[in-house]
Amino acid sequence: MEKLLNIQEMSKLIGLSTHTLRYYEKIGMLKGVARNEQGYRCYSEADLLWIQFLICLREMDMPISEMMHYSNLRTQGDSTVYERRVMLEAHQDKVVQQMNKLNENLGRIGAKIEHYKGLEKTVFCEK
């Protein structure tokens, strides 16, 4: 039998607050979390994997509305596999564009740093 985690254990393990876990459940992104005899949440390995994926989406700046839509599609089962894949591909494209823009801007900052280093050598050599 797999070890089930309570909300504090899950929170500590994944780095989300208990408030966020409850919120995800309240808005329907985290469905089917088991409860024990006392009514406390008992998170399974499957719950852990799903929450980790939600964290991944959030860290990649997917809006909560899109995360909810993806979650609802997932709940509908295999009939939505195509739509989920297309949705992830579209988000992946956005992330790649953001990464390209960040790399471009990082290059600009690097060039400016090199420019300042050159100026420093000129200024300090003259003194």
Rank of each mutant, 00 (worst) to 15 (best):
Lys117Met: 06
Lys112Gly: 03
Asn72Cys: 09
Glu89Pro: 10
Leu73Tyr: 04
Lys101Trp: 03
Ile14Gln: 02
Phe124Gly: 01
Met60Pro: 00
Leu119Ala: 02
Arg35Leu: 12
Asn105Trp: 02
Leu102Ala: 07
Lys121Asp: 00
Asp47Gln: 09
Cys125His: 03
Leu54His: 06
Leu57Cys: 05
Arg41Phe: 10
Met10Pro: 07
Lys101Glu: 11
His91Pro: 06
Tyr23Gly: 02
Lys31Ser: 01
Ile51Leu: 06
Asn36Val: 04
Met68Cys: 11
Leu54Thr: 03
Arg84Lys: 01
Asn72Pro: 06
Cys42Thr: 11
Asn36Met: 04
His91Gln: 07
Thr20Gly: 02
Asp47His: 09
Val86His: 09
Ile7Trp: 04
Tyr24Phe: 11
Gly32Phe: 12
Lys26Thr: 06
Ala90Tyr: 07
His19Met: 08
Lys26His: 09
Asn36Arg: 07
Lys127His: 13
Leu49Ser: 12
Leu4Gly: 09
Met10Glu: 09
Val95Gln: 04
Glu2Leu: 11
Arg108Gly: 01
Val86Arg: 05
Met1Ile: 06
Thr122Ile: 03
Thr20Met: 08
Leu48Phe: 09
Ile55Met: 03
Tyr24Asp: 03
Tyr116Pro: 05
His91Thr: 02
Lys101Arg: 12
Ala46Asn: 14
Glu104Phe: 11
Glu45Asn: 06
Ile51Glu: 00
Asp93Trp: 08
Val123Glu: 06
Tyr70Lys: 07
Ile14Cys: 04
Val81Phe: 14
Ser44Trp: 12
Gly107Glu: 08
Met1Gln: 05
Thr20Ala: 06
Asp61Gly: 00
Ser44Gly: 11
Gln92Ser: 10
Met68Lys: 14
Leu57Pro: 00
His115Glu: 15
Glu37Asp: 12
Glu9Thr: 15
Lys117Phe: 02
Met10Gly: 06
Ile7Asn: 02
Arg22Val: 01
Thr80Asp: 09
His69Trp: 06
Val95Thr: 07
His115Ala: 03
Leu5Arg: 13
Tyr23Phe: 15
Met10Cys: 09
Lys12Asp: 15
His19Cys: 05
Gln38Tyr: 09
Leu5Asp: 03
Ile27Gln: 03
Glu2Gln: 15
Ser71Thr: 11
Thr75Gly: 11
Ser17Cys: 07
Ile55His: 01
Cys125Asn: 03
Gln8Asn: 15
Met1Pro: 04
Met87Glu: 08
Ile14Gly: 01
Gly77Cys: 04
Gly15Asp: 13
His115Tyr: 14
Met99Ser: 06
Glu2Lys: 15
Leu119Cys: 01
Tyr24Cys: 04
Ser79Lys: 13
Asn36Ile: 02
Glu9Ile: 13
Ser79Tyr: 08
Ser17Gly: 14
Ser71Met: 07
Met62Asp: 02
Lys101Ile: 07
Arg74Tyr: 15
Gly77Tyr: 05
Ser44Asn: 14
Ile51Ser: 01
Ile109Asn: 12
Lys31Asn: 01
